[in-house]
Simulated scan of single mutants.
Amino acid sequence: MLKKIVIIGPESTGKSNLCAALAQHYHTGWCPEYARSYLIENGKEYNYEDLLVIAKGQLALEDEHSSRLQRAGTSPLFIDTDMYVMKVWCEFVFNKCHTFILDAIASRRYDLYLLCNTDLPWVQDELREYPDPETRDELFRIYRALLIDQATPWVEIRGSGTGRLQAAVTAVNQLLNS
């Protein structure tokens, strides 16, 4: 059975790099963050309705990667971003959240969350919005509170380089060996 592991956290916390490294380590696949390609293609200015389009695109991309791995008999799937990220993004920027996103949170099932801490240095790119440490820490606390209040196991990932990857591998191994 396909195990799904979601990597979440604020911007510039190494989520995409961690997904790629974990997929390589376990010889499996990972689902990238749809928002990046959407914003590169459509421009970095977005509105509340764009976040619904991005959420639907993220779920479609996740389903595509899930189906591919299930057909190949490969597991786990590492997922860069889920609907919790979309919820935080909607509420943080627009003070409201689409019902579609909330319904997806209630209906989707995952096996493990890896919450990336803000202990990595900020790396600027054209899509990132919140470089100040106070906002990054506030967003981290929001993600942490969401994970505390739900049933799926989760582990906070800290450190850099191979230490960060090893912390994630340890958490994934515990899931896979349970």
Rank of each mutant, 00 (worst) to 15 (best):
Y84Q: 05
S12N: 08
Y34E: 00
D111T: 11
L51C: 15
S107W: 00
I7L: 15
L147I: 04
L114E: 07
A20M: 13
C19Y: 07
R108Q: 15
Q24W: 09
V85C: 10
A35H: 04
G29Q: 13
E41W: 04
W154H: 14
Q70S: 14
V93G: 04
N17L: 06
K15Y: 02
R164D: 00
A23T: 04
W89Y: 12
E64Q: 14
L18Y: 00
R36F: 08
F92G: 13
C90V: 00
A72G: 13
E49P: 08
W154F: 15
L115Y: 13
T135N: 07
L52G: 01
I8Y: 03
E49F: 03
V53Q: 11
L147D: 07
R158H: 15
L115Q: 04
L61K: 08
M83K: 04
V93F: 13
L147Q: 07
L115A: 06
V6S: 10
W122G: 07
S107Q: 09
A167V: 04
D111C: 11
Q24C: 09
G161C: 07
E129W: 12
A106V: 07
L175K: 00
Q124H: 12
I40L: 14
S66C: 12
L52M: 05
N47E: 13
I54T: 01
R144W: 06
L175Q: 03
C19W: 08
R109Y: 08
Y113G: 09
E41P: 05
D137I: 11
W122D: 08
L120S: 14
W89G: 01
N17R: 06
N47Y: 05
T162V: 15
R109Q: 13
E138Y: 10
L112C: 06
R36N: 01
